[in-house]
Design a protein around this nucleic acid. Structure first.
Length: 856
RNA sequence: GCGGGCGUGGCGGAACGGUAGACGCAACGGACUUAAAAUCCGUAGGGAGUAAUCCCGUGGGGGUUCAAGUCCCCCCGCCCGCACCA
């Protein structure tokens, strides 16, 4: 009797084998195809969470599978180590952000290692270390030279108590999250990267990203928000002012019923500032909140300035309103309203009794009688009621109006993007210092490259509000690099998206002290073949990285535009929620499920209300600590469960029973191999010349599993891959070998099984592989070859339908003649009965699939 | 409001337009055990029938087709994203 499988010891053993053999260390090898597997690197919060486990398990399956397939696989890991939580720890617990972060990294690295990931740890990076961030300071200087970085004033959320700038998510109901003080809007001079320079390229590049989820590409497309249209002027009557508007529908100019300005448009103040009710109106707009979704439900309303405006081409006056649904940030902050052809304008016009004049008439409608009801007409058609453009199509009319405005000098065709330049200044300590000096003489002076890196001072305190760099007694006082006079260091640091915008390139040459990365190495490894992470980074991180790659290319660092050739976005991990009688949330560890199906509290045995499975969150306490799971069930069972229950792109419902099921399978497989060794052929037994029926059937199961798991893994159908593995396992468990060919097939079957589970449960696979007598570890063993001949069987079972209803099934030789199939189907007793007394009108035979007898 | 996605047993989920429910979880019956756990064998969409077999079933309603979970139209529900983007 074999000993019970000691999961923890065995897993540890194989990890040290991989370590000793440096199994995952890679270097450039031009004789092989490279494959770059990357999971989004973690923020070192201290402990891994289930989302990490899912993310890294998926990546590891891909990495180990590709390695077995013969690719030169790079699979690195690192730490997104700058950021706010470290400063919060400093404020709340008196820990230095650096010390806190570094000790977190140590802990989390241990945890990740216990998952058995195939990581090349020699490529590890931590973005908070000067040997990492020095290179991005250099990049910034290069961007500056290339005109891709610039300084301008912009608004920030300012917490007057903490003396600090707040991120949008730190502003709750207009108040600072920590202090509760009303947030002020302040103007600060800040650094920007010119992502808009690449707006069109970033948009166009999306269509080349075939292995990205459609969803993410659409989100980026919407974010970039390209629109082509006309920008032109209206004259305000009696005010000696003009209003510049942008429109994507210049064709509808003659349907204009009003002009509308954003509430914070400078002209709004000029035209309406002193009017009665305007202050009140503005307050109402602000109370509405800035979130588009909030404004959604809100009513559209406006303030009549009393002025009218005219346009030369139009020759008619329209009223000028200030309206709550116009955004200052987009276009020019002013629009002309065409109620007939825009729903918002229509709603607005109905409210203020403005004329609704259709100017685009759908095909087939009569211009004289066409009327707009509750819905604006936004479709195609011919122009009407529009003087010189009557009869033109929408597109022709747009072009004509733009041409006329340009000729008249009152406007021009232009393209607007929603995308805005990336503000990278953060008024914080725990980030990469911006390598700039401010000199009274010379102005803004870049720190010379030979003086990099500008490192963070360690002796900082968090006992007072504000940025410690600003308060530091000496750090910011420097001599100007140009004139040598007293000057002041920039105390802002980079947005932490800066670090994550190029880390994938650093991994290619992680220890290079002289440059961010060697160009040749980057060119060998990049782009990332498979990037895996949460969909929450669909826009910002992924767009910034795409921008960075282009900027680095233009600064001569590398030769590609797109950093990630393939992207996979995983779903969330959810868990049931529990509440006690008083409605207090309970952790899963605080409850117990009794034998009769009740759920009770562990301590006082009182009943517990079970809620739906939702995204894990601290506030609902429906979290589990992956370390507990790893310790109890081992890495393999944890990985197996995570892969088996749901398709990776969908949410995964975490259940203890599910992990337990995976754990049972791990043990069962171990038992099957160790206890049934007598049933196998000897390790090097020659392949029999012929196989009996039983052996062949088993071999078919094995070879189909080999081929099936491969395609499933390549397509990220990990749950299906696991199902196939279990199918093969079931076939093997049920098999008793009586003859030599069967014993050979049984060994082949188990060896195949062990090899195809290797990407999912690598420790178990290694253990069983060695148990089966192999001395070369599986990590160095290629993916098994599926024999084509065994993937097809020589008989097929096909259903027989009568009038589309299944009545029988028949088994035939594969590719049997249609006539054979037809007669076999017609002879079947059930079919006979079903067609009895009816006339057969047609028999449809789809070879190897189905026969359908149509009777009247 | 716009954009995207999803809806299949008690549950998670399978299913090139071609035998719906693979695989698993939970459940039930049995074996082993003094007993339990573990393990093993078996049953299992709903309904009728001793059975053969039949009827009904993929959110709802229509349609296309020899054949629809799958394709088309309308509707309902849920989830995600967003920027009232002119």
């Amino acid at each position: 009797m074999a000993e019970r499988y000691n999961i923890n010891e065995t897993e540890k053993k194989w990890r040290s084998v991989w370590d000793e053999r440096q199994s995952f260390k890679v270097t450039e090898d031009r004789t092989k195809d490279k494959y770059y597997v990357l999971e989004m690197f973690p923020y070192p919060s201290g402990r891994i969470h289930v989302g990490h486990v899912r993310n890294y398990t998926l990546g590891d399956v891909v990495a180990r599978y590709r390695k077995a397939k013969g690719y030169n696989v790079i699979h690195p890991m690192g730490w997104d180590a700058f950021g706010l939580p470290a400063e919060n720890a400093a404020i709340e617990r008196g820990l230095h952000p650096g010390a806190w972060t570094r000790s977190n990294i140590v802990q989390m690295k241990d945890q990740l290692k216990s998952m058995g990931l195939s990581i090349d740890w020699e490529r590890e990076v931590a973005t908070c270390e000067p040997d990492y961030y020095r290179h991005e300071q250099k990049m910034f200087l290069d961007f500056l030279k290339a005109g891709l970085a610039y300084r301008k004033e912009s608004m920030v959320n300012w917490d007057p108590v903490d003396n600090t700038v707040l991120a949008n998510e730190q502003v709750i109901d207009g108040k600072g999250w920590r202090t509760g003080a009303p947030v002020e809007r302040r103007r600060l001079s800040q650094w920007f990267l010119k992502i808009t320079h690449y707006a069109d390229d970033l948009l166009g590049g999306l269509s080349t990203l075939e292995r990205w989820p459609e969803k993410v590409r659409i989100m980026q497309e919407n974010w970039i928000g390209k629109s082509v249209g006309l920008q032109f002027k209206w004259n305000v009557q009696g005010a000696n002012e003009t209003i510049e508007v942008f429109t994507t529908r210049p064709d509808t100019l003659f349907g204009a019923a009003f002009l509308a300005l954003a509430p914070d448009h400078p002209m709004s103040e000029k035209l309406a500032g002193g009017k009665e009710g305007f202050a009140e109106f503005r307050r109402k707009c602000q109370a509405q909140g800035t979130s588009e979704a909030a404004i959604e439900q809100g009513e559209k309303f406006g303030f009549d300035t009393g002025y009218t405006a005219t346009h030369p081409l139009l020759g008619r006056e329209v009223p000028v309103y200030v309206a709550n649904f116009i955004l200052m940030d987009y276009g020019t902050g002013a629009v002309f309203g065409v109620p007939a052809h825009d729903q918002r304008d229509l709603d607005f016009a109905r409210k203020y009794n403005l004329p609704v004049r259709p100017v685009v008439i759908p095909e087939g409608a009569d211009p004289a009688s066409f009327e707009i009801g509750k819905e604006a007409y936004v479709g195609p058609g011919r122009l009407a009621n529009s003087q010189f453009i009557n009869g033109l199509s929408v597109d022709d009319a747009k072009a004509d109006i733009i041409r006329r405005c340009e000729e008249a000098g009152t406007g021009f065709g232009t393209t607007q993007y929603r995308l805005r330049d990336w503000g990278i200044s953060r008024q914080r300590y725990w980030g990469c210092p911006i390598p700039i000096v401010h000199c009274g003489n010379c102005g803004v002076v870049p720190v010379p490259e030979d003086q990099l890196p500008v490192t963070l001072p360690d002796d900082v305190t968090f006992d007072k509000p504000g940025n410690p760099l600003e308060r530091h007694p000496t750090w910011k006082h420097v001599k100007c690099p140009t004139c040598g006079k007293d000057a002041r260091r920039e105390t802002d640091t980079f947005d932490t998206f800066f670090e994550s915008s190029w880390y994938f390139a650093r991994y290619c040459d992680a220890q290079n002290p002289n440059a961010a990365f060697g160009k040749e190495k980057a060119e060998y490894w990049l782009p990332v073949d498979q990037y895996i992470g949460g969909v929450e980074h669909a826009v910002l991180h992924l767009l910034y990285s795409r921008f960075f790659t282009r900027a680095l290319r233009d600064c001569g660092y590398l030769d590609i535009a797109e950093p990630f050739a393939g992207l996979f976005t995983q779903g969330m991990v959810t868990h049931e929620t529990y509440q006690d009688q008083a409605g207090k949330w309970l952790y899963p560890t605080e409850i117990e499920k009794t034998a009769d199906g009740k759920v009770i509290k562990v301590d006082d045995r009182s009943p517990v209300t079970v809620g739906p499975s939702i995204k894990m969150s601290k506030s609902k306490k429906n979290t589990i600590d992956p370390q507990d799971i790893l310790d109890t069930y081992g890495a393999d069972a944890t990985r197996l469960f995570i892969l088996s229950d749901s398709p990776p792109e969908r949410d995964l419902e975490w259940t203890e029973a599910g992990v337990e099921g995976a754990w049972k399978f791990v043990n069962r497989l171990h038992r099957a191999v160790t206890e049934n060794a007598d049933g196998f052929a000897a390790k090097d037994a020659p392949k029999p010349a012929t196989f009996g029926e039983n052996a062949t059937r088993l071999r078919q199961a094995a070879h189909r599993a080999i081929a099936g798991v491969a395609t499933d893994v390549e397509n990220f159908h990990m749950n299906k891959a696991v199902a196939r593995v279990r199918e093969l396992a079931n076939a093997l468990f049920a098999f008793t070998a009586a003859t030599d060919d069967e014993r050979w097939a049984l060994r082949e079957g188990y060896e195949s099984l062990v090899r195809i589970i290797n990407p999912m449960t690598p420790h178990l696979a290694e253990e069983l592989w060695s148990e089966l007598g192999h001395t070369t570890p599986l990590v160095e063993t290629p993916w098994p070859q599926a024999e084509e001949a065994l993937l097809v069987s020589n008989t097929v079972t096909l259903g027989v339908q009568v009038n589309g209803k299944l009545r029988a099934s028949i088994t035939l030789a594969k590719d049997a003649d249609q006539k054979v199939a037809e007669s076999a189907a017609m002879e079947d007793a059930n079919v006979q009965r079903a067609i009895e007394g009816k006339q057969v009108r047609k028999v449809i035979v789809v070879p190897n699939r189905i026969v359908n007898v149509v009777v009247s």
